[in-house]
């Protein structure tokens, strides 16, 4: 825990200063998780604020401060899930307005503005983003929390309030789907991914 239970109780009683301290303590960690869950750096802060906004208005529903962290993780996952669903709808409508050539040109223009290392990171993000796009938003988040964030099944069990076996099955299926998409990718892309790591 990054904060005392007492601080959480104070925030539950409407203490704005205590709430501020909680946000400051967890802000960096939550923003990092969101960055990996949504893969769009420009929107990370916006989603992060949404998480803490939800935290502020639902803090009184938290019965025991001991479960604060899984609960905050759950709020993060829910906010990321809502963002991804909105984003998918927005992307579908936006992309339908552009021709394929326009999309490629816009992408190339955007890519030219950043340096090579950033471009490489962007490429990896896009590659994983496209792989994770082969599963549902819910599976994408679950897989990211397990494979990228490195959360254990016990931690995931607390966040999702689902038993471990159900999580294992869901994770296995999601991973198989991503693996299949990864296997079907251009071998050059895979090789460069290997070289990268």
């Amino acid at each position: 825990m990054l904060v005392d239970f007492e601080l959480i109780k104070c925030a539950q009683n409407g203490d704005g200063v205590a709430f501020n301290e909680i946000v400051l303590a967890y802000r960096k960690r939550i923003l990092g998780t969101i960055a990996r869950l949504i893969a769009r750096p420009e929107d990370v802060e916006d989603v992060g604020q949404e998480v803490f906004l939800r935290l502020y208005f639902s803090l009184d529903q938290l019965r025991t401060p001991e479960v604060f962290e899984p609960w905050l993780h759950r709020l993060t996952v829910n906010a990321a899930y809502d963002y991804l669903r909105k984003q998918r709808r927005r992307m579908e409508s936006r992309m339908s307005d552009l021709s394929e050539q326009q999309v490629v040109m816009a992408d190339a223009q955007a890519g030219g503005k950043i340096d090579q290392e950033q471009q490489e990171q962007k490429r990896i993000r896009e590659m994983v983003d496209s792989l994770l796009g082969t599963v549902s938003e819910a599976d994408r988040l679950l897989l990211t929390l397990k494979e990228v964030e490195g959360l254990s099944l016990k931690e995931l069990e607390k966040i999702y309030r689902v038993n471990e076996n159900a999580l294992k099955v869901r994770l296995f299926r999601a991973r198989q789907r991503v693996l299949k998409a990864f296997g079907a990718q251009d071998p050059r892309g895979k090789d460069s991914a290997k070289a990268e790591v």
């Binding site: 802000r27 960096k28 960690r29 923003l31 990092g32 960055a35 990996r36 893969a39 750096p41 990370v44 802060e45 992060g48 490489e120 990171q121 962007k122 990896i124 993000r125 590659m127 994983v128 792989l131 494979e147 990228v148 964030e149 991973r175 991503v178 693996l179 990864f182 895979k190 991914a193 290997k194 990268e196 790591v197």
Partner: peptide, 20 residues
């Protein structure tokens, strides 16, 4: 499987927590 694990690891490094 190994390549995918390595890719996830690279993804983790590529998505560092931004400074608020």
């Amino acid at each position: 499987e190994r390549s995918l694990d390595a890719l996830f690891q690279a993804y983790r490094d590529a998505c560092q927590a931004p400074e608020p």
